[in-house]
Design a binder for these strands. Structure first.
Lengths: 272, 272
DNA sequence: CTTCATTTGTCCGTATGTATG
DNA sequence: TCATACATACGGACAAATGAA
C-alpha cells in the first residue's frame, strides 16, 4: 500500500509540470511544495500518535520510497521537523520523536542576559568590597553551590551611568577557580559572565533566574538610605551554569521594591 | 582572478579524498566541513563590516565561484546565516544583511504562557465574581487599556488543584468584545487566553509581563488571611496582545511574597 | 504592460564520509 | 568487523519571484 501511495504521488508530481490548457484560469490550488507536503504529513503522524514520542521515524531511504521523492526533499522536510522541535536526529542512529506537539510556541529572546533588564545598558557596577568567602548554607542553596565552598564575592552597587542613582545592591559570586580574574572585574563594564567566558574558555549554557520579594535587609537599607519600617526589595538571583549544570557565577540583586519593576516581552514564534 | 581561486581551491578539494599515505598519523585537523567554513567566513565579513547592514551579500553563483564549492554547499552556509538572524533572503531579489551581530543568544521558551509558572499545570481558578466594569486610570495603565473602557473582570483565587491552597489573588480582564464568552470562563481549565483564541478566532502574538512587589492590598489580605503589618505581595501583570499590539485580555496576579518565588530557565541557542 | 535577465526556490540524481550499534 | 543511517558534497534542471529595460 505504501507502494500505491508512492505511485499516486509520483503520478501527481509528474503531472505537475504540465502547463495549464490555456482557457480556464483554474482555481489554482496553492501548489504546496513537495517537501512541505511531506513535512505536514510527518507532523500529522507524530501528533496523531502513529510515531509516538520516543519512537524512531522511518529512515530517509524509507521515506524516499514511501513518498516517492528524492532524499533531498525528505531531508528538507525532516529539517523542518528538527527546527520546530518535533524530532532529533543522530548520525548513524536515526530520527527520534521528541515531542508530539513540537517545540515552544512562545519565546523570550535576548542577545545578552543583561537585556533581561531594560536598564542594563546604561548602568555601572561600583565594587565596594571583594573577598574570598566560604558560603554558608542558605547562600549555597541560593546560588547552587556546595555549602562551605569558596567563592569570590564582589559586593557592590549597580546604578545609572548618568547620575549614579542606585538601582540595586548586589553581590556577585564567582567560583574560586576564576579567582585569578579578580583584577579584571573592577574594570569590567559588560556582564561578568561574559568576561569569564572570554578569559577562561568556558561557556554559559543556561541560566536560572528566581525572583522573590522580601523585607529589605539591613545592608540594603544602608545602601538605599531607606529606614521605612515595611520596606521590601525585589530580589533577583541569577545563576550562570555551564553545560554540566554547575554554577560558574551567580549574582544576588536586591532592588528597592517601590521603584523597581521587572518587565519582559515574550513573543510567539513561527507561523504555527 | 576568481577563476584562479576557484581552480586552486577545487584542486585542494579534489585532493582531499585521497587516503593518507599510511605512515604519519598526521596532526589530523578537526576537518571543519566546507559549508561551515563558508558560513564562518561570511559571518566574519558581516560582523566585520565588509557586508554592511542593509547591503546585499553576493549571489549564490558568485559565492560558488569564490569559494569553489557547489551551490548546495553555499546554500547550506546561507541557511545558517538565515537561521541565526544575520541575513534575509528573497527569491528573485537576493540576500540582504539584517544584523551585524546576528539574532538572540539566549531564549526562554515555553509551550504555553502558563508555563512561565512552574505550578501552572496543577492549579485551578475559582471565580468569585464576574462583572463588566469601566476601568479607572491606574488599572487602564496597568493592563494597556483606554481609561474608562469596558472590560469583563473575573475576580478569583488561583489555588493548587490538590488541596486548594491559595496561590494568588487574581483579576482577569477580558475585552468587552469577548463578553459573549462569559458563560464559558467558569468551566475553563487551561489558560483563558487559549479559550479566547480558540473561540473568537484571534491570535495572541505577544505578551508583556511585569513583576513588582508592593504592600499587600486589603482585598488580598482577606483572601490569604494575612494581617501581618509589613506583608507584601509579588504582583505579576500579564497582558496578551494581538498582532496590532492592543490588549485582548490581561491578568493581575497577587502572590503572597513570603511563599512565592518566580523562576525561569533561560538557555543559550545554537552552538555559537 | 510586456519582456527579459537575474536570483533564489524546489527537486532530482549520485557518491563518499562518519557515527552508531 | 560490518551493515545501517545520517552528514557532507558534487552535479544538473526547471520554477517562481523580482526588478529593470
Amino acid at each position: 500500500m505504501a507502494e500505491d501511495e508512492a505511485q499516486d504521488l509520483s503520478r501527481i508530481a509528474a503531472a505537475r509540470p504540465a502547463p495549464s490548457p490555456d482557457i480556464s484560469p483554474a482555481p489554482r490550488m496553492p501548489e504546496i511544495p513537495r517537501y512541505l507536503q511531506v513535512f505536514q504529513d510527518l507532523r500529522a503522524r507524530i501528533s496523531g500518535g502513529r510515531y509516538p514520542v520516543g519512537s524512531m521515524v522511518p529512515t530517509e531511504a524509507e521515506l524516499c520510497a514511501e513518498f516517492a521523492v528524492s532524499r533531498h526533499t525528505v531531508r528538507e522536510a525532516l529539517r523542518r521537523l528538527v527546527d520546530q522541535g518535533y524530532v532529533e536526529r543522530r548520525q548513524g542512529s536515526g530520527t527520534q520523536v521528541l515531542s508530539a506537539e513540537g517545540g515552544s510556541l512562545f519565546t523570550q529572546s535576548m542577545r545578552s542576559l543583561s537585556e533581561l533588564f531594560q536598564y542594563a545598558l546604561d548602568t555601572d557596577f561600583a565594587i565596594t568590597a571583594m573577598v574570598m568567602t566560604a558560603v554558608d548554607e542558605p547562600t549555597a542553596r541560593l546560588i547552587g553551590a556546595e555549602p562551605g565552598s569558596s567563592w569570590l564575592a564582589l559586593h557592590g552597587i549597580r546604578g545609572t551611568r548618568d547620575d549614579g542613582v542606585p538601582i540595586s545592591h548586589t553581590v556577585v559570586y564567582v567560583h574560586e577557580r576564576f579567582g585569578w580574574l579578580r583584577d579584571d572585574f573592577p574594570s569590567c563594564h559588560g556582564p561578568f559572565y561574559a568576561l569569564i567566558e572570554q578569559r577562561a574558555q568556558v561557556t554559559v549554557m543556561e541560566t536560572l533566574q528566581t525572583i522573590t520579594a522580601l523585607p529589605m535587609p539591613d545592608a540594603s537599607r544602608q545602601v538605599f538610605g531607606d529606614q521605612t519600617p515595611g520596606a521590601h526589595v525585589l530580589r533577583v538571583v541569577r545563576r550562570y551554569l555551564d553545560r554540566r549544570g554547575s554554577t560558574l557565577t551567580a549574582s544576588i540583586n536586591d532592588h528597592p521594591a517601590d521603584r523597581f519593576t521587572y518587565t519582559m516581552r515574550i513573543k510567539r514564534d513561527g507561523e504555527r
